[in-house]
Computed example of a mutant assay.
Amino acid sequence: MHLHDVWFVLIAVLWIGYFFLEGFDFGVGVLTRLLARNRPERRVLINTIGPVWDGNEVWLITAAGATFAAFPEWYATLFSGFYLPLLVILGCLIVRGVAFEYRAKREEEYWQRRWEWAIFWCSLVPAFAWGVLFGNIVHGVQIDAEKEYVGNVLDLFGPYPLLGGVVTLLLFTFHGAVFVALKTLGDIRTRARRLASRLAFGTAVAAGGFLVWTQLDGGGRWSLLALVLAVAGLAAAFGCNLAGREGWAFSFSGVAVVASVAMLFLALYPDVMPSSLDPAWNLTAENASSTPYTLKIMTWCAALATPVVLAYQAWTYWVFRKRIGTDSLSTAGEH
């Protein structure tokens, strides 16, 4: 295996980690309107992710930075061709972060209500948009011989990418509902489990259709294995949720997210961005990569820094592992 192949795998792992962690993060944001009945319950939901949401976004920053350094051609084509959708996502992430921090700075009802709506919409839009973008990356876009994207914004919204957006939105919301059931107490915990059960069927249908389409479009035996794991993970999460085993349900919903994203990268490889105009113009892990010397330096840096980051983030989740409910709001800090 060459270093460009290693870095394709590492970037895939970074995106998998991002969608696993930020997936339930986005899901909780969506649930602030679908599940919470009043402001105290919305505060409970926000507090479940308050200590960790910003750490989850580190995976996105690292994935983007690693793509820029390891695959500059991929980065250039991706960020120029998808400039407007990525700008929308970035704007949502900025507003969402500000909303988490500013919502509790004033006590006026209208002030908190507006920031809560910002959390909802700025969680829902990226959850959908990421699926659309990755659907385009896997399915192929209009790339010419100069490795330039020559389509327009409307070309990004075909049936396959739109289905991908629906899948990520449903999958993240299901993942978030299971996480809320794991992290809360009382009535909100019961309703989160009930909502997760209702979401499970629609998520399974949409995800199954999308992943089967992906497999038929260009998958192999490894992507087929990931498809089976994704479906099995959803089924197991549903069963564990019904049985009230929230920890196992969250683990299996995580398996579904991880396997689904892994399948996209397995179906994509060895390409990084296929051209829908001519297969000869595909961006591949080889022709889009940096020099071997650059990749070697990056590999050493990643080997030294990654264990520290993983250990710190694991410690953060351990520290904030306890359940919370509306009864604990008087002693819980605002996030």
Rank of each mutant, 00 (worst) to 15 (best):
S289E: 05
N241R: 00
V150C: 08
V30I: 14
A36Y: 03
L264V: 03
P159H: 05
I137V: 14
W7M: 05
A332T: 13
F157E: 10
R43C: 00
S289W: 02
F19L: 15
A99H: 01
N56G: 00
F134T: 08
G164I: 04
D327M: 11
P274I: 00
I297L: 14
G17M: 08
H175R: 12
F238M: 08
I61F: 12
G233A: 07
G209K: 07
V88S: 09
V231W: 04
L216W: 12
F79Y: 06
L283E: 02
D54G: 03
P72K: 12
A235R: 10
T291L: 15
V44L: 03
I16P: 08
F100L: 00
L163D: 07
Y75E: 00
Y312S: 15
F174C: 08
E116P: 02
L35E: 01
R96K: 14
A305E: 13
L195M: 15
T331F: 09
E109G: 03
F179A: 04
A303I: 08
G219D: 00
E334H: 10
V58I: 08
V153S: 10
A267K: 10
A267Y: 03
S80L: 13
Y149R: 08
F20D: 09
T48G: 12
G65A: 10
R323E: 15
G135K: 00
M273C: 06
L60P: 06
V309M: 11
E109S: 14
R113S: 12
A118M: 14
G208D: 05
L3T: 05
R198C: 07
A302D: 05
T331R: 13
T173P: 10
T299L: 14
I143L: 11
W115T: 00
V125H: 00
G208Y: 00
L227G: 06
C122L: 06
L78E: 08
Q215I: 01
F172V: 09
G91C: 06
R321W: 14
V125G: 09
A249R: 00
W111E: 09
A196V: 01
H2T: 14
G29M: 01
T190S: 14
R106L: 11
L242S: 02
